[in-house]
Simulated assay, not measured.
Amino acid sequence: MRTVYVNGEYVPENEAKISVFDRGFLMADAIYEVAAVLDGKLTDFPAHIKRLHRSAGELGMRVDVSDDELLEIHRELIRLNGVDQGMVYLQMTRGATDRDFVFDTDALTPSLVLFTQKKELIDTGVARNGMKVITVEDKRWGRCDIKTTQLLYPSLAKMEAKKAGADDAWLVRDGEITEGSSNNAYIVTKDGAIVTRPLSNSILPGITRATLIAYAEETGTRIEERVFTVKEAHEAAEAFITSASVFVGPVVSIDGVQLSDGKPGPVTTRLRELYIAESRKRLL
């Protein structure tokens, strides 16, 4: 049984409790972060905390715990649960109060919950074989750049993909790919350029995305931050996703159109190896 963190206490998961009046439960008035664990240590942790503060700031939500305290909570959960590879999930809500659409942030005490998941991150089926995606209409709210717990539509999109025999869904607005249901989306053009949508309110500013782009640019890889269409995706040489839980995941089929002979392509494979190698140098 896992040990989880709830509002200042480390407790067995079956004893963890949070108020039924918490606005995270009632209104999805909550933000979250997911930090990957490699070799028992955290990847990209400072960037995750920076994004947590950004999300809180965009929603006018207080963060009452220091960055150093958050690091120690993460590390303690990794130790208590014996996590060598996996994830640490952090969820913060505005707090608990009687149900109302209006709120007084200053009068509320934010709720803070963290838990771990053990998961193989290196030797995975996606890394070996790639994944299949379908495209679906992007029906999310207009502030996808804030990492909130409003994840119902992404969950429905992923279920639609599963019903279609695919692994995930890429979301589409006006014929252009925004991102995956829980990841950033990329294509590799026939001339070797890596294309991904530029940051805006339409996509999450992925931590793995930013780190990978920085690593790739150091090697002289051409990155094009621009919109791309479903048609361009179907005609791409390769495609892939990035996320904290997958790192770099090859996409070998989009809407049934096979890419890179149905196998992880060389550019994607090299980027995945680069990300893992460089990340291991910067673990906390």
Rank of each mutant, 00 (worst) to 15 (best):
T3M: 10
V34R: 02
T196V: 02
K118E: 15
L199V: 13
V252A: 08
A236T: 10
E137R: 01
N201P: 12
E160P: 00
R54Y: 15
Q150E: 11
D22C: 07
A96Y: 11
I49P: 03
V34K: 03
L271C: 06
L212Y: 06
K50I: 10
G249T: 09
F240T: 03
H53E: 12
C144G: 05
T196L: 01
E278T: 00
K50R: 15
A28H: 01
I78R: 08
T219M: 14
E273G: 10
R2N: 14
V11I: 05
R282I: 03
S200A: 10
L283I: 15
V248E: 05
L77I: 05
A214Q: 08
V11C: 02
N201R: 15
S260G: 06
M87E: 15
T116A: 10
T269Y: 06
G60I: 03
L284Y: 13
E217K: 15
S19D: 10
A210D: 13
L204Y: 15
M61V: 08
W141Q: 05
S243D: 03
S182D: 12
T149E: 03
T105W: 05
V267N: 11
L284A: 13
Q258K: 14
L38G: 00
N183I: 03
A210G: 13
S66C: 01
R54D: 14
G142W: 12
S260K: 02
G262S: 03
D64K: 11
V83W: 01
G175Q: 10
D84N: 14
G57C: 04
V251M: 06
P205L: 06
K132Q: 11
K139F: 09
P46K: 02
H74A: 01
L259W: 08
M92E: 05
T208H: 10
S55N: 11
E69Y: 06
V227N: 12
E225W: 07
I49Q: 12
G142N: 15
H53V: 05
L199M: 14
T221C: 11
E120G: 00
N81F: 01
I213P: 05
D167N: 15
E273Y: 00
I223E: 12
T105K: 12
K17E: 15
R222P: 07
E179G: 07
R140L: 00
M27A: 09
A127F: 12
D100P: 00
G265A: 00
A28Y: 02
K263N: 09
A210E: 14
V133S: 08
L121M: 08
D123A: 06
I146A: 05
L80Q: 09
L90G: 08
V188K: 08
V248M: 02
E15M: 11
I49G: 02
P198L: 00
G265K: 04
R99S: 14
R2Y: 14
A36L: 02
P46R: 05
A214N: 11
E137H: 04
V37T: 09
K139C: 13
D145K: 06
D68I: 05
L112P: 09
I207H: 04
A244I: 04
I146E: 07
G206P: 09
D100V: 04
D106C: 02
E33W: 07
P198R: 00
L108W: 13
G95C: 07
Y89N: 11
I73C: 06
